[in-house]
Design a protein around this nucleic acid. Sequence first.
DNA 1: CGTCCACTTGACTCTACTCAATATTTGTGG
DNA 2: CCACAAATATTGAGTAGAGTCAAGTGGACG
Lengths: 216, 216
Amino acid sequence: MPQTIRQASTTTPDDNYSATFRSRGRVHPNHTVIYHQGDKVDGFYRVNSGVVMVFRLLEDSQRQISGFYTEGDFFGLSADEHYHDTATTVATSNIVCLTMADVRQSLELQQELFAITCGQLESAQTLITTLTKKTASEKVATFLLMLADRQKRSGEEFDIRLPMSRLDIADYLGLSIETVSRRLTALKAQGVITLPDRNTARVCQFSKLSEMAGAQ
Amino acid sequence: MPQTIRQASTTTPDDNYSATFRSRGRVHPNHTVIYHQGDKVDGFYRVNSGVVMVFRLLEDSQRQISGFYTEGDFFGLSADEHYHDTATTVATSNIVCLTMADVRQSLELQQELFAITCGQLESAQTLITTLTKKTASEKVATFLLMLADRQKRSGEEFDIRLPMSRLDIADYLGLSIETVSRRLTALKAQGVITLPDRNTARVCQFSKLSEMAGAQ
DNA sequence: CGTCCACTTGACTCTACTCAATATTTGTGG
DNA sequence: CCACAAATATTGAGTAGAGTCAAGTGGACG
């Protein structure tokens, strides 16, 4: 099934349900909660534009960010009736909520949904590897590369948008905010990036940055 | 869909395809590779009995174990044509390979498969939280509790079987083998567990162990 | 112009890693 | 069945990387 599904997902860029995504999307300002940890599941979501982050809050109020979602990404899938995490916007975002009724109507969507979940599981495992096997420097470099990739930036020099705060980055990579800051400064000192403003990382030597991200 | 699916999965303990699992299962000795990273996906698997571990090998030959699977668990789902990890037995195991043909024949199985993948995604996120927010002691305690739970052990005192090596535990928790050993020794020194042999952890104070696992 | 907030930088500490030695268990051949 | 070798696990000593606490910097905004 996976193979078949992958085919389905790559051959459906502008179909019936794709139009639904856009027409039914709603715009949310920055820092809007889309759903809350513990809420009853009412469906799931697709980012039409903007950025959404999903995190889990622990009993001792520590926070683990499990992912950042951008245009075309789905989030809010749950195995049971209640959400185990919270989703909020990190920029003005257009988001569409899809219901189970939508899914039942489209076999295509059903299959794509399964492929997406498999893909997210694989991403989660890649993140696990990053968290356990990489140093702080490598983690930060890897994070920048992930953003560049999602933002479709390429070449030796380009700008990466960082809509999230340093604390958000820290809570994603399992680092302290100070370490994130120090590692970014180190990359700057090595001439790999510059930081024109707090929400931009200008990559000067992409190849060097890749090298610093360590083994995959 | 998630809710509906959960219902489906809880109401199918002994149905048509459930029998298929058992009749078509094959027994593999310990340390048998079920599939290899890079292999073409031919289907997915269910553990009828025994223990299977799944891991990813990095370029620099570091190893990240993404999970241990026991009776009733599914593994080997992939979003694309090739496996991104390797699966091997960690004990003599009865495993059934399911093909896409099996899935197409059963809507029930299709739905359960989706629920399972969602559940695995959630487990992965729980592991991520463990890896980033917990100390070595908490990680080891959490690992023991996870095994106890899967082995359906309960009460204040019971034995946990540890079919995997210390290195396996280390590669799962993102620790060094020495740290795993030291943390287990510390738990022993605190009277929380004893270690009758290298493949058994006898829990003496379950409540204390839970406490040591830290915030969820 | 001053306040607030996010970020950066500095000094120090501590946890977990590395390297090394020792102990224990497992496996093998005589 | 024992002796030895090999593999696995434990323990020890020293180190380094990331955390904590604290102070300082720099925009954004009223």
